[in-house]
């Protein structure tokens, strides 16, 4: 099964992945580069969890798990009840502003069908986002410094290598700094 891999030591906050995702999905990005403690940029996209709360929450079975392990939303079935938005542990499903339809990363299913990589993976200038076989990704990730974890609900899903910083090096921003 293929998964996304995020090596957070490499993200430089250029947000090229967001632009690539917007270009690929009609102007709305489904990957969010989020600042952690105002210092660490982290691209957050759907984790494609093995145990998927969104699929269980959907009352009309509009969310489906494909054979490749991708969790995709069939937007034509969505009734915009917003239950998947509440159920998602990572906050990567949002209702779009215009049609109020739930949408999220589908691992660029149309590109994978053509044998191409997802747009964010190809675009990332530092190869922070990678896509490949789960076992191979895990082997590659474990060889690197920093904590490697499967950041998803279940055994498989998106693999993340956290930034390699000594304990206490990251200064927490005070609440008044924004």
């Amino acid at each position: 099964m293929n998964v996304l891999y995020l090596d957070l030591n490499r993200c430089i906050y250029c947000r090229a992945c967001e632009v690539a995702c917007e270009r690929e999905h009609g102007g709305v990005s489904r990957i969010f580069v989020t600042l952690l403690d105002w210092t660490e940029p982290v691209p957050v996209a759907c984790r494609h969890c093995e145990k998927h709360p969104c699929v269980e929450a959907c009352p009309v079975d509009a969310i489906e798990v494909t054979d490749e392990g991708a969790v995709i939303i069939h937007t034509n079935k969505c009734i915009s009840c917003g239950l998947c938005v509440i159920a998602c542990p990572f906050g990567v499903i949002e209702l779009d502003k215009a049609g109020k339809i739930a949408d999220k990363c589908d691992l660029c299913a149309h590109r994978l069908a053509d044998g191409r990589q997802p747009a964010c993976v190809l675009t990332c200038p530092t190869r922070c986002i990678q896509y490949g076989e789960f076992e191979e990704i895990m082997a590659r990730a474990r060889a690197k410094p920093g904590l490697t974890l499967v950041s998803a609900v279940g055994e498989t899903g998106t693999v993340v290598t956290m930034p390699d910083r000594p304990a206490g090096a990251v200064q927490k921003a005070t609440s008044g700094s924004d």
């Binding site: 989020t34 952690l36 957050v44 990572f90 904590l147 950041s151 956290m162 910083r165 090096a169 990251v170």
Partner: peptide
């Protein structure tokens, strides 16, 4: 806030 919270949880695992 879920995006931030999930990252903070992962960060706290490390440090």
């Amino acid at each position: 806030c879920k995006r931030k919270r999930s990252l903070e949880t992962a960060r706290d695992l490390q440090a």
